[in-house]
Write a protein that binds this DNA or RNA. Structure first.
Lengths: 148, 148
DNA sequence: AAAAAATGTTAGTTTTATCTAACAAAAGGC
DNA sequence: GCCTTTTGTTAGATAAAACTAACATTTTTT
């Protein structure tokens, strides 16, 4: 199933809102994504046709099992890309979130897999690695200073 | 000046074709970007209005000074992202090229700056660093094996 | 130089995702 | 229980970027 960036954003937002406030309404999505309610309506119609959400007129929006799986996949991508950008590269968290949100839709599975591997590597390595490369790098990133 | 991803791709392709074959025609762009010639025409019309290219009916396409600057900016982004993906993360070069081509249009200046810094760091570090973290990481990336 | 092929242009259509504006239904306040 | 506000829906418009199909111009072949 190949979803557009826009539809992936809707799915992700539904999942996040459900975790935050349980009920997900058209207005919530409109606010979360910064689009008009009519746009939400159109998008939900498409997701419904794809069997990704369940929605009855004037009621709140629910993910189907299929939709939940798709949403979780997008969210996982987002989270790992966000951590890579903010924790590793030191990007400001606001910007890291924005960029992750754009990259998550266009990155290939292969590239994402590599980023994922890298974050796993870093996470474990940081615990017991004797070399101070990571610290050196963070210093470098921070003030552009070289550390030999 | 805020260009769409599509227009940035056209500029980048014009720069690359100019370097390869000197003359850049509508057909060259059509082939390079995999779009119809009529689409190239429409895009060139927009770039012309923005003073980024110079183009007379039935003649070849040239970048203005402004267009060249913009094209170089995009290409630099592409090249550094490509090196990061292929050389550092070990992504297949075909896929790295595709992904770089998508990411270059959406990444923030801040994030791109961080990637740039990182590649500079790596490049110098690799020359004299005693720790074998980079080698360890590449092994990890390659076969998912942990190296303690 | 005429015919054929390649190249370039134009007009009009399609798709995706947004918007505005008008309207419909539901929820809350009194 | 009515009125107002909030929420949801529908219809129609717009913008970007591609497409097809028809046509125009230039280049190449013979």
């Amino acid at each position: 199933m190949n979803l557009s960036a826009s539809l992936e954003d809707y799915l992700e937002a539904i999942l996040e809102l459900k975790m935050e406030k349980n009920k997900v309404r058209v207005t919530d999505l409109s606010n979360a994504l910064g689009v008009k309610k009519s746009s939400v309506n159109t998008a939900i119609g498409k997701l419904k046709k794809l069997n990704l959400v369940y929605h009855e007129r004037y009621e709140d929006i629910k993910l189907t099992w299929l939709g939940l799986e798709a949403a979780k996949k997008v969210k996982t991508k987002h989270d790992i890309l966000f951590r890579f950008l903010s924790e590793f590269l030191g990007v400001d968290i606001g910007i890291a979130d924005e960029d992750a949100c754009k990259i998550e839709h266009i990155i290939s599975d292969e590239t994402f897999g590599r980023v994922e591997n890298f974050m796993n590597f870093i996470e474990k390595k940081a615990l017991y690695d004797k070399s101070k490369w990571l610290k050196d790098f963070k210093a470098f990133i921070k003030d552009g200073q070289e550390v030999v």
